[in-house]
Amino acid sequence: MKKILALSVGVVTAAALVSGCSGDTDAAGGEPAAVIEVKNMAYTPAQVSIEKGQTVQWRFNDSGMPHDVVGEGQLEGKLESELLTEGTYEYTFDEAGTFDYHCTPHPMMVGTVIVQ
């Protein structure tokens, strides 16, 4: 009986952890709605879709090579990280639209955030 109870508690705990890490939380929930890896000279994924009011997080890890995130169009001067080799940068998108960004030192690195 103790083994069944322990197994049941483990299954319930695992289910709670999985449902709590869905990756679809908005900024108010504390978790980013989308995570973009910045490594291998690319933003991965290069395009994400989120809802208005949600946050995107960029995670930098490209073997010491510095990159940034710089918005184009209406986000020019607003969406702008420092040059980073590691760490994260977050931005909350408050308006719907399609927003492009690039890496200043590597202009071939481009990405898009689609906000519904």
Rank of each mutant, 00 (worst) to 15 (best):
A46G: 12
P105C: 04
A42P: 05
E95H: 08
G64D: 02
P107Q: 02
M41C: 03
L7C: 10
Y43R: 05
Q74L: 00
S63M: 01
H67N: 05
S49Y: 12
I36Y: 06
H67K: 02
G87I: 15
N40P: 05
D26W: 12
K39H: 07
D94L: 03
D24L: 08
Q116W: 05
T25F: 01
V115A: 01
P105K: 06
G97F: 03
G73E: 05
Q54S: 12
H67P: 03
T98A: 06
I50W: 14
K39I: 00
N61T: 06
E37N: 11
G87W: 15
V115W: 05
Y101E: 04
T92H: 13
D24A: 09
Q74C: 00
L7R: 09
K52G: 11
E95W: 02
G20V: 06
V70H: 11
P32Y: 00
Q54I: 03
Y43T: 01
P66I: 00
T112P: 07
V115F: 03
I4H: 03
N61P: 10
A15F: 09
P107G: 01
K2N: 02
K2E: 07
T13N: 07
P105Y: 14
I50E: 12
N61D: 15
H106P: 09
E72I: 00
K3L: 03
A42F: 00
M109E: 14
G20C: 11
G30N: 07
E31V: 03
F60Q: 11
G30T: 04
